[in-house]
Amino acid sequence: MYHAISTDDFTRSTVERLIRIAEEFRVSPRHILRARLQGTLVATLFYEPSTRTRLSFEAAVARLGGNVVGAENARENSSAKKGERLADVFRVVGAYADAIVIRHHENDEIAAALPYSPVPVINAGAGSGEHPTQSLLDLYTLWREFGRIDGLKVCMVGDLKYGRTVHSLLRLLTRFSGIRVTLVSPAELALPPSLHRELVDAGLELDVADDLDEALASTDVVYQTRIQRERITSELTAEDEEDFAILPRHLPILAPTARILHPLPRVNEIHLEVDGDERAAYFRQVQNGLYIRMALMDEILGGVLR
């Protein structure tokens, strides 16, 4: 059974295969796509708020001909409110659906409950831990924007401590060669030391920078992230946050071929005026998420029908 719980579940060849499938689906006639997962049923369980991830998974399944049942805000509006264990949720929901897509507020609960699921489980974000399918769409975006992933210089900016999208993307970048990453964040939101060591041991080149302007001048990719105020305990002022925001004045600093990515939602960390620049790729990134998740769901659920 093929789960997608962690970036550990994806090799370089898996990522490249999913990118090829996503590219095929992008140009395939809709009536052909709708036949691929016809008759399947996917359950989406979101214990934390979501817009892009939930809707893109549901749209992916629908575009492939499958059906979706779901629970939004499941932390408050399901039996979780009564204390039901996630293992029991998997047993129950797995009796109804062919696969489960879940976002959870705890880092490790999905993995702990996984042995109890009778159907494939896809991690749609777990606490401040991982968000593996976001990293898939991030890599797909890099491939579409640059025609390659190897050899890119990436600048990670913002909340690197709690940003699960950052954690997953950095782990998947270790599958590729010649990647150099510069980390720029408030001191209290730096990358966790244990993850920093893990990435270095895996061969990723990591630098830490204090000067955002200097880091932007020498990068191919800016991966900007939101300060996750719902997870932090320290007080960051608006002025503190602006020190790590992408503003119109930064655009002349960036190389003409550079790209700005953001997993969204965006608050104040990228100025609205930046959106009109061709190097702002974050809304193209959103669209890429639909196709890469279509590819993933086809891979996972294909065995149900074929």
Rank of each mutant, 00 (worst) to 15 (best):
244 F>I: 11
4 A>N: 04
254 L>W: 01
57 F>K: 01
126 A>L: 02
51 T>W: 07
118 P>G: 10
4 A>Y: 11
37 L>V: 11
16 E>C: 10
146 F>D: 02
150 D>C: 05
299 E>Q: 13
285 Q>I: 07
129 G>S: 14
46 F>G: 00
50 S>V: 05
270 I>N: 00
242 E>G: 09
42 V>R: 06
147 G>K: 08
211 D>M: 11
164 R>L: 06
118 P>K: 08
252 P>A: 09
163 G>N: 02
97 A>L: 04
73 N>T: 10
30 R>T: 15
168 S>M: 05
163 G>H: 05
101 V>M: 11
90 F>N: 00
82 K>V: 07
216 L>M: 11
71 A>R: 11
51 T>H: 05
36 R>V: 10
170 L>K: 02
3 H>T: 06
13 S>Q: 14
31 H>L: 12
161 K>N: 12
152 L>E: 03
33 L>S: 06
259 R>W: 03
79 S>F: 06
221 V>N: 02
215 A>Y: 03
115 P>R: 08
141 T>A: 09
93 V>T: 11
119 V>C: 04
101 V>W: 09
258 A>Q: 01
53 T>W: 01
82 K>Y: 08
98 D>T: 10
83 G>C: 03
238 A>M: 09
198 E>G: 03
69 V>P: 00
186 P>F: 04
54 R>N: 01
251 L>G: 01
11 T>D: 08
1 M>N: 12
266 R>F: 09
